[in-house]
């Protein structure tokens, strides 16, 4: 049984350490906030200018002046702070954020990430993704292992335009977990009930097995 979106988020949440400042991307990464391990306290950064993101507001209490980077209404915590976009990206670019968890379209065996543009389709823009992968100390990508067409997404070389070159530290898919560094890709975990043969068959990139 491959991991569900929630399983993948729960696995990604294990990367959180007490005291971390963390930026979560849109989609599965947002779900990570539901699985913060007990005894671990993290501060969520929203790149539109907030540290200490709280949960969604109760019905009737949404404030149009208080949104996250996905433009969803949120709330503040006692510990929250607000700042400008320039300050926000100074935090990101300056290496002050410990961990960024974001989605992906393709990851290459050298750590390249593509997640913002498919040539020939309307391009919405990279938003803050290029800054996050360039500046945050540890970058975790969470994505499905294969395209809907079955094409592999962990590849030798990205065919899609890059978001960042050599930036991915950890990849979590619905089938497995991979560590990526200068030495290449190492498979370190299999999703429960997934066989190594299946991962091999669905992966284009070269990888070592370190289970």
């Amino acid at each position: 049984m491959a991991w569900t979106r929630n399983d993948m988020a729960a696995r990604a949440a294990k990367e959180l350490q007490d005291g971390f400042y963390v930026n979560l991307g849109i989609g599965i990464p947002t779900l990570v906030a539901n699985y913060i391990p007990e005894g671990v306290s993290v501060t969520l950064q929203s790149e539109n200018g907030m540290l200490g993101m709280g949960p969604f507001p109760y019905e009737g209490e949404a404030d149009p002046d208080l949104i996250n980077a996905g433009k969803q209404t949120i709330t503040e915590l006692a510990s929250s702070s607000y700042f400008s976009s320039a300050d926000s990206f100074a935090m990101i670019r300056g290496g002050h954020i410990n961990l960024s968890i974001l989605g992906g379209m393709q990851v290459a065996q050298n750590g390249d990430l593509a997640n913002w543009m498919v040539p020939g389709k309307m391009v919405k823009g990279m938003g803050g993704a290029m800054d996050l992968v360039a500046g945050v100390r540890r970058v975790v990508v969470v994505m499905e292992h294969s395209e809907k067409s079955g094409a592999p997404k962990l590849v030798k070389r990205c065919s899609l335009p890059l978001t960042g070159a050599g930036v991915v530290d950890l990849l979590i898919t619905d089938l497995a977990v991979f560590e990526i560094d200068g030495g290449g890709v190492r498979l370190t975990e299999l999703a429960s009930g997934v066989a190594l043969e299946e991962v091999r068959a669905k992966t284009e990139a070269d990888f070592a097995v370190a289970l």
Partner: peptide, 15 residues
């Protein structure tokens, strides 16, 4: 007007 783009809330019952 301060239009909201993505209104997201949680139910009152949680309170």
């Amino acid at each position: 007007e301060k239009r909201i783009e993505q209104l997201t809330t949680r139910p009152r019952a949680e309170k």
